[in-house]
Nucleic acid binder design. Structure first.
Lengths: 361, 361
DNA sequence: CTGAAAGCGCTTACAG
DNA sequence: CTGAAAGCGCTTACAG
């Protein structure tokens, strides 16, 4: 006698001859139920094909959907385009799943469909990852939902969720480059920001002035190591093409650099693409460094000299932080004492030497 | 006077001096509301910081969560491991978003945490993509939720959602290989299935007997083209390593083949990896073909001779099908006439010739 | 053009 | 160890 249209807790409770509350507790385990009573409920459930309380009812009654919104563009692109974000999603997904939270992917709001969707979706917290588009409308909307929100978009509150000492990492890398004997060093940096900017030669100070926080820290590291760049290129977008443009401009100088330091692997890859095409050997004629240690088409794993940013670990750290924010918020609503969020975890950023930096003799 | 703890439709309606139903209709637009009345409601909402009906309330009252569960393992792996699944996710996400549905990522059930999660999450339909693990418990559970479900796991009902003529594609590819003069042809095929199988040499018939439907169709194509394989290798897992093993075994034969046909790019890549390491030149000494046209580390785009499976397009087709199933189910519940699902869309599978097949002189 | 009311499927104090 | 009842925030016939 299975297959009732839609079996509900109430129906099961009735069939088992108990109150809804008792049946509920059999499934949630939040209250002790007499073994025989529990057994009776379970048997009734089984007979009726009831697989447990509906997520919807639970969500409404408890006020928790056990869903985390993840606003991202990463799934809307070639896997090759932004592997770091994918790794972050991976870490988020795993850590949240561990805690019983699912992630629901939400595209940035850019049109009616995405606006509709953003409003229709429910979640207890949200993390945005590398969106690139739709900031104007998405951000105010997310804020209006008044749930905990961590943004990994290169600005806002990323620092409050995960600590990264970019400067120490790039300083260590730059020191090694200097020790390798390089003196004509150029910098090609990205200015990932809400607006795109044009590609082009610039100066360290100008670039620094408009760079987002994390890029600044990376530039700080170069400076602290003692790098005096002979040329600085502003990459307008986070793309391999932008790197190629940088390569073309910098290698076209009267006195081309022997080493180009970048703040993103995609740019390093683009520069190397251009160098190879122009018959410039890497690292014999030109050394190049990156940041992130992502996998790149056309390159061996571990080939590029770079800083390793472990996306999965980062995702996990961020997830733990958001979970903690959720707990604190729940405690606050329950009216208890104001709990502390606690320390922000640090993501290690080791240098990977690779094979794209030559020691000058 | 914003910032009420939790602003509800009821509160807004009261403030605007209208009934809840009227306020509701202002937001959903499902009923005409007098302009001034609507304006009054909107103003009250704005003043109180109300951003629209809660997704939760809507979901419970309407019975639709506007969420599609996507059971996958793809996000739990290196982006490089399974780019095709990622592309499929991309397509699903886009097409569902277009229709106002968000996707919630659910890992296969393999332990307490994932079981808990699967039960906690709500969705109106589900599509599973290349899970590889946890079939035993996940499948019965998904079935028990009684929502439309499409499985892209290499078995079950994939054919009912998207039509792919694998056989015609591999037949065309194999014909060209034969025309190129190859006679000593080997086959290395994967048997992606619920259980993994050992790597090893086998026979065409044995392999065919245990292969899943889609692999069979690909083998059918080879046969229809007239390929008489001199050796057949069973790849036990869908991995590059399994391909390397195939390469080692097949190139180690007394009379090694001049061409190896595979049913997956990862295997083709593994075979080429092994060949290169052993000093066997591709395609001069060995031709290799794949299936899927995924991006692969260490290979140029378009390098491998293969069949192009457009993951994003596939995801979109599958999403449209599920959306249609949802409509039909809703119509059935509403008690109308039984609607037809309609035709299954076809995913084109063009051959990409690439540079890994040599013409023998 | 608008209202009052039932109900979606649960959880959670409150009471015993 | 168990029940009866309120309530979570909406939508949707039903009435007028």
């Amino acid at each position: 006698m299975a297959e009732h249209r839609h079996v509900t807790l109430a129906a099961v409770a009735k069939a088992a001859g108990v109150a809804k509350s008792t049946a509920s507790h059999v499934f949630t385990g939040k209250r002790v139920v007499a073994p025989e009573t529990a057994e009776r409920v379970r048997r009734a459930a089984e007979a009726m094909g009831y697989t447990g309380p509906s997520a919807l009812g639970r969500a409404l009654a408890s006020g928790r959907s056990h869903l985390i919104g993840v606003v991202t563009h990463a799934l809307l692109e070639d896997a090759d385009t932004d592997p770091l974000s994918l790794a972050i999603l991976d870490g988020l997904q795993r850590e949240f799943a561990q805690a019983g939270y699912g992630i629901v992917i939400i595209p940035p709001i850019t049109d009616d469909a995405s606006r509709e969707l953003a409003h229709a979706v429910l979640y207890d917290g949200v993390v945005s990852v590398r969106r690139m588009v739709g900031f104007e409308e998405t951000d105010p909307y997310l804020a209006s939902r008044k749930v905990p929100w961590i943004s990994l978009d290169g600005y806002m509150n990323e620092e409050s969720a995960v600590r990264m000492d970019d400067a120490a990492a790039t300083e260590e890398l730059a020191r090694r480059v200097l020790e390798a004997g390089h003196t004509r060093i150029a910098i090609a940096a990205y200015t990932f920001a809400v607006e795109e900017r044009p590609d082009g030669l610039t100066t360290y100070d100008e670039l620094y002035a408009i760079a987002p926080e994390n890029v600044r820290r990376r530039l700080d590291g170069f400076r602290r190591a003692g790098v005096q760049p002979v040329a600085v290129y502003q990459c307008g977008s986070v793309s391999r093409a932008s790197g190629e443009a940088a390569g073309e401009a910098l290698l076209g100088l009267d006195e081309p650099p022997t080493c180009i330091l970048t703040t993103a692997d995609v740019h390093a890859a683009g520069i190397i693409d251009h160098a190879r095409r122009s018959g410039v050997r890497v690292p014999e004629d030109l050394s190049v460094t990156g940041f992130d240690a992502i996998t790149l088409q056309g390159f061996e794993n571990g080939e590029i000299c770079t800083i390793v940013q472990d996306g999965e670990a980062k995702g996990r750290i961020v997830a733990r932080r958001l979970l903690r924010m959720l707990e604190v918020a729940a405690a606050a609503r329950a009216g208890g004492e104001v709990e502390e969020l606690g320390e922000v975890e640090e993501l290690p950023l080791p240098v990977r030497w690779g094979t794209t930096v030559a020691t000058l003799s």
